Amino acid sequence: MKFHSILLLVLLVTACKDKPKPVVKSTPRPTISTDGGRITFPDSVMIRPFTTQSARSASIRTDFVAPGHVAAMVLRSSENPAERLVLFDEPSLSDNYTAILQHRNNIQTERGNLDRVKDLQAHGAASGKEVIEAQTQLANEEAAIISDEATLKLAGFDPEALRKARPNTILVVCEIPENQFSSIRKGLICNLNFTAFPNERFAGRIDNVNDYVDNTTRQIKLRISVANPDGRLKAGMFATAEFGVMEGQFMTVSRDAIVTVQGRDYVFVQTGPQAIERRAVQLGQQRADRVMVQNGLKENDQVVTANVLQLKGLSFGY
Score class of each variant (00 low, 15 high):
I206V: 13
A161P: 00
R84Q: 08
L188E: 14
I176C: 09
L9K: 00
G272Y: 03
F181E: 10
S92M: 11
A134G: 11
L87I: 15
S94I: 13
G124S: 06
R264I: 11
M237C: 09
V70S: 08
A203D: 10
I132Y: 00
V291G: 01
I220T: 04
K17E: 06
A55E: 02
V13R: 00
Q270F: 04
M246H: 15
A126V: 07
S147K: 06
A134L: 12
Q274M: 12
V293G: 00
Y212W: 04
L314C: 12
T109C: 03
T305K: 03
R201F: 05
A99C: 05
P49T: 06
S182E: 12
V291K: 00
R116F: 04
T34Y: 06
A306C: 01
K186D: 10
Q310L: 09
F197P: 02
P273G: 05
Q294E: 14
L11W: 03
I189D: 14
R163F: 10
P67E: 14
H103D: 11
L192A: 05
Q285F: 01
R255F: 15
I6C: 03
D115N: 07
M1S: 08
F202I: 07
M73E: 14
S57L: 11
G317N: 03
R38S: 05
F41P: 01
P42G: 06
K221I: 07
R48F: 09
G68C: 06
K21F: 00
N307E: 13
P20A: 08
G204M: 00
K221H: 07
D289S: 13
I107N: 05
Q274V: 13
A99H: 04
G128C: 10
A241M: 15
D207G: 05
E247R: 07
G317I: 08
V24G: 03
V303I: 08
T240Y: 10
E200V: 07
R223C: 11
R223Y: 04
S77C: 02
M237H: 05
S57Q: 09
V259E: 15
F64M: 10
E160H: 03
Y97V: 05
T260G: 10
T169A: 11
S127C: 14
V245G: 14
R218M: 05
L154I: 12
R255S: 15
T240E: 15
L12I: 15
E277D: 14
K17V: 12
E277W: 07
